[in-house]
Design a protein around this nucleic acid. Structure first.
Lengths: 238, 238
DNA sequence: CGGATATTTGATGTCTCTCAATCTGTGTGG
DNA sequence: CCACACAGATTGAGAGACATCAAATATCCG
């Protein structure tokens, strides 16, 4: 029950939550102040450097988390031990599997990131008392399913050029500000390949091709500037 | 509250539900008798012939359903209007999107099928009163996500032969009885191609190759007999 | 049995992977 | 401040797998 005016609530809320940039998007958004205090009680804020692993595939599935900032990837091992990226998580997203006892995906931080990490068991217990939280998780699961099916469509049918174009548009949507279409990719060429199902060389060639045609500029190793969005969209459809 | 002994419950339950083969697997399994009567009240049993469309992509998203028997596919349009299969639904599965206002997938019946069809709005309303139902839907959504990511891995990394082998094992698991590894595919070669991201010709050639190597037999157009499961599994891993 | 549809088989081309070398940019130590 | 070293990225040449186009069967159903 929301028992106090805003000015008072700030006193009772954990300071980190009151100032949190994903306070209204993430799991927390579903909770009234008392619930938020409880969630904060079971969770722990962690800052992880790029490359750090949050969950190892095959290990006991002990934790879930809310992404506060940064980008994470979920990976599964394909044949020959090669790893493929099967999902990305951005600020506000929920990562981890609430119900599996053994993790079947490795979750790794791609850029420096802040997370709110929760023990899975405790979070599961909270779920029973907070139907709105469960509803949000259902929404998120369906959103992730939608994403996965979008990638399926791409992996199954699109040529390399169209994959790269689709990928750039998707990254621009998720990372870029509304204004200028300038952003940094949160991952290396090798990781782009692991997501799009192609080799690093093919990724590079397609990027270069877009650059030569004046569709994008590629400043530095990770920078992207979309110069001609219409043509990029056309390339993504083909 | 489960208020009566089994013998009595049969009287109050709709006859179709009492005798239903997915009574303990599907959405219905989460409901006590009174809830089941309510669910039956908003739903309608429909028998659909193979090829029938349940939901058109782009149309208002009006219904969801439980699959009682048969197999359904969820499709999305790729480039050039070609359609790709992004999900399958078997007996006991839930199909449809509870929250989208516009359907973004076409759902089509692959074999003759029986469904319990529910208006989306009414089902959504029931959800608030039945947390167990919501929990099951969350489980199902995560299961579908797991499936989608499995297909992603396949589409991204596996060669044609490995895709076919994986597909056959998966179909055997979902359709076959425990005993003899004999079953009929619920779909045409063309649909297999639309699921695995390859042409009908490549599907055919890979099937023939497995047949020639004595791994499977292919009686009739749709029949499959797995003769050497170990070798099929080996082919699926490659 | 006959026609339509689905599947198999064949010949050829193209795209992407593989292997290999060069280049760029990033960070370090002199 | 510059030279150097290293990892990541780009570019090139060649081979292989799958797509495409085209034809010949097989299967299904009335």
């Amino acid at each position: 029950m929301r028992s106090s005016a805003a000015g008072e609530a700030i006193v009772t809320l954990p300071p980190r939550c009151a100032a949190c940039n994903v306070r209204d998007d993430a799991l927390c958004a579903t909770l009234e102040d008392a619930g938020l205090v409880a969630l904060h009680g079971i969770g722990r804020r962690r800052t992880l450097p790029a490359g750090q692993v949050l969950v190892w595939s095959g290990d006991p599935n002990a934790i879930c988390a809310t992404v506060v900032s940064g980008v994470l990837k979920a990976m599964r091992a394909g044949p020959e031990g090669r790893e493929h990226i099967v999902g990305l998580a951005f600020a506000g997203d929920f990562v981890g599997d609430l119900f599996a006892d053994t993790a079947n995906e490795t979750i790794r931080v791609m850029t420096d990131a802040e997370l709110c990490v929760y023990p899975r068991a405790a979070l599961q217990k909270m779920l029973d008392a907070h139907p709105a939280m469960e509803r949000l998780l259902l929404h998120r699961a369906l959103g992730a399913l939608d994403d996965a099916r979008m990638w399926m469509l791409m992996l199954g049918r699109k040529a390399a050029g169209a994959r790269i174009a689709t990928f750039l548009l998707e990254m621009a949507r998720r990372m870029g500000q509304p204004g200028p279409a300038r952003f940094d990719l949160p991952m290396s060429r090798s990781e782009v390949g692991a997501l799009l199902g192609m080799t690093i060389e093919t990724v590079s060639r397609q990027m270069t091709s877009l650059k030569r045609r004046g569709v994008v500029a590629l400043p530095g190793g990770r920078g992207v500037i979309i110069l001609d969005r219409a043509q990029l969209a056309r390339a993504a459809a083909g």
